[in-house]
Design a protein around this nucleic acid. Structure first.
Lengths: 203, 203
DNA sequence: TGGAAAACAAACCAGTTGGTATGTAAAATA
DNA sequence: TATTTTACATACCAACTGGTTTGTTTTCCA
């Protein structure tokens, strides 16, 4: 039986720090994130932070691996695995992106892409961890597309790996456009282009 | 007659600072850019910097308006205006992106997108200036597409504005993927998806 | 049950960084 | 030519920021 601690709960503390760090990084970027601000939102102090993480970099790495990866997974992995018509599922997710990913997607963009564009050229550790999430994301898409192709719903000549890469790229680009415009409209406007491309893959 | 000053040339000094600032911002982001580093590359000092720019923010704004805008214009504006077959011109530019935009495009990404993703949610002044460049870029593409449609080279049912937006988004996304992978391969791999979409617009 | 280890809090520190005050030589101007 | 203005250089500073040290209270375990 799991025992409930009222006064201390290190796992929950770690998660509180991580969640706050994620929000700060999402809003201000990694370099723009101040550890004092991360802590202010939790009510904790430096002692707690440096007990759970050796330094700011390790906290940033953990945000990628423990928070952002889970967010992408929630939106894409399960729906794709369970979908009867994979292509329809992909299109559905793109169409309802703002609802599925939260309002912040329009104003703050894709948290994975944000970190990728900021940190990939600066820190190889970040780059590798971010790339691992992208690889997972592409793999979930590619496997779903292959299933659709095996079902005969998708054209036989479609290169599923390439299409998966393009979907990730194009969708990321669309979200980025919406973020810069600070409006939902371009996300739908631009997503329509991606969807029309996807429709063209139908058998 | 333009007189050549050997000892002082404020316009050239301003441009040296701007060019160096562009490189630093391109490499480290705006928040990651240190004014001392910008100056180190020029051999100038704070006195020169703060004579030409009131503060770091104004320098950042000038990088968008005076440097990045020119780079995008060089790559897209003239080729599109002069192209006989606009769609072929677009595809050509995408195919030879690494040559046209320089090697840095693979390792450092799109300078406009970098700043957009970092600064749009943080600074309205940045956002507006970046958005103005995006609007120009889309307009150049949309006008070229309309010309192609009028020529009968592009399908009559194509929404040129929407396609232009999608091209910008998808290409930006492709460059971002290549940057995170730190390799040219995904740029071509991913650009192929965009090109196959563009081919489908042919009449 | 008592000592060790874990989980924090609080105060502090040194390096960094955008910005400023002051000085000075070259150009423009009157 | 005298004077003002421009175009910088130099030295300096206050605020910020990641990280450390020390102290205290729980929790674990032998």
């Amino acid at each position: 039986m799991e025992e409930r601690h009222r006064t201390r709960n290190p796992d929950a503390t770690r998660r509180r720090i991580l969640e706050s760090a994620y929000q700060e990084v999402y809003r201000h970027g990694y370099q723009g994130t101040r550890l004092d601000d991360v802590l202010k939102a939790t009510g904790l102090t430096k002692g707690a932070l440096y007990h759970h993480f050796p330094n700011k970099q390790a906290l940033g790495y953990a945000v990628v691996e423990d928070v952002i990866r889970g967010i992408i997974s929630d939106i894409w992995r399960k729906p794709l695995e369970q979908a009867e018509d994979p292509l329809a599922s992909i299109i559905h997710t793109i169409r309802h992106m703002d609802r599925l990913a939260g309002d912040q997607i329009t104003t703050l963009g894709c948290p994975l892409n944000n970190l990728a564009q900021e940190m990939s050229p600066l820190d190889e550790g970040f780059r590798r961890r971010i790339d691992a999430v992208y690889q997972d994301w592409r793999a979930w898409l590619a496997r779903a597309l292959e299933r659709g192709r095996a079902q005969g719903r998708i054209r036989a000549d479609v290169d599923c790996e390439q299409v998966a890469t393009f979907i990730v790229a194009a969708l990321t680009g669309c979200i980025g456009i919406a973020k810069n415009a600070q409006s939902k409209e371009p996300l739908n406007h631009c997503g329509a282009g991606l969807i029309s491309y996807l429709e063209s893959l139908r058998a």
